[in-house]
Design a protein around this nucleic acid. Structure first.
Lengths: 144, 144
DNA sequence: GAATATTGGTTGCTTTTGTAACTATCAAGC
DNA sequence: GCTTGATAGTTACAAAAGCAACCAATATTC
């Protein structure tokens, strides 16, 4: 028997931290817009990177295509995005935020920044950089 | 428009990191024992802290009681734990790992340590301490 | 250029989670 | 000691996620 504790198990800590951090922000998109997490992510991607295809969102966000598909459908019902058919490749459709979608995106973006700032408030620039590098690496968001 | 990117949003990074970190370890308990994450957590708590009540696991693990209830039922079916009725308070039952439960716990514990070591391999003691403090704090596992 | 494989995306079904209501027991107030 | 309120735990139902099969369009291969 050694003294390895559940709180020494990084995946456990990551899970609990992720849960808490998301939970608190969730109220922003859920209570006001009835949005699910994947919907918020899709909205963010479209708001941040402009129009793109569902496939690209899957790749960028590391999300399964069924989740994205349903999120897109939900956002469409909410009139937050519209689908533009692609003449070159009729399988694809380019997704584009509507005015309402953009408005919502900007509002949530501001909240997100506030939330993020609060989470990192007590850490120095160096520490933040370390945390970010660690999370990116574990998440295998290589970007390098 | 500012340059706040999705990868600057800590809850997002936390989620993806947590997903990846858990995913890779999941094979250990899922493929071999058909266990779910909550089952593994309950097993860990009982293995680490000895017999305890479902309620205590809920508190310690920050898990909802229905999830724990189902995990306990599943572990019982697998003959990894047994329930000891409490004579003082007939509502409670003390949960206790069986021999098979303990064996499995020790095997998974070793895997968990290996997995954790791999995750943190390239970080110094100071860096690890920072990461841990950060995650504990965000997860609101105060312990202080 | 017909047959096959691949890709973008959706749908249906199953498993898992979340929520609320419920049972049974215990504790407090009166 | 009876009513009211809390507490441990389960169960039933609804929401969400995961997985596999599917459709339609495009690439590839021969």
């Amino acid at each position: 028997m050694n003294n390895f504790d559940i709180e020494d198990f990084t995946p456990y800590l990551l899970n609990r931290a992720a849960e808490q951090a998301s939970l608190r922000f969730q109220a922003q998109y859920r209570d006001t817009y009835g949005m699910l997490r994947t919907e918020w992510r899709v909205l963010f991607h479209l708001g941040r990177f402009g129009e793109m295809t569902a496939r690209s969102i899957c790749d960028r966000a590391g999300t399964h295509k069924t989740k994205v598909s349903r999120a897109v459908a939900a956002l469409e019902r909410k009139r937050f995005l519209k689908r533009i058919p692609d003449d070159q490749d009729k399988r694809c459709e380019t997704l584009q935020l509507t005015r309402a979608g953009k408005t919502t995106f900007y509002k949530l973006l501001a909240e997100a920044q506030r939330h993020d700032a609060a989470l990192l408030a007590s850490y120095s620039q160096d520490e933040r950089a370390l945390l970010r590098r660690f999370l990116l690496r574990v998440a295998e968001i290589s970007r390098a």
